[in-house]
């Protein structure tokens, strides 16, 4: 099942222990506590649940939800 923007946001909020409503689409997630362990968790989760092919570097290079959406083939 393809990812949606909402799902990305929900998953990010989950690994950060935050409310999805508090996670903006256009801001640097590093400022919200995103780190390499959490990015790897997301990479693995999305590969397992959604069959995505993104790598750690892909996500780490531009750590913002709106940047990730096209990489993850998300419907917006």
């Amino acid at each position: 099942m393809a990812l949606t923007l909402e799902q990305i946001r929900a998953d990010v909020a989950d690994v950060l222990g935050e409310d999805p409503a508090d996670i903006p689409d256009d801001e640097n997630l590093v400022d919200y506590g995103l780190d390499s362990v959490r990015i790897m968790t997301l990479v693995e989760r999305w590969r397992r649940d959604h069959g995505t092919e993104v790598t750690f570097v892909d996500l780490a290079e531009k750590p913002a939800i709106e940047q990730w959406a096209p990489l993850l083939g998300a419907r917006t």
Partner: peptide
């Protein structure tokens, strides 16, 4: 700190 998040240094 790896110091590479969001940076050209990732590569």
């Amino acid at each position: 700190m790896m110091g590479r998040m969001g940076s050209v240094a990732l590569r």
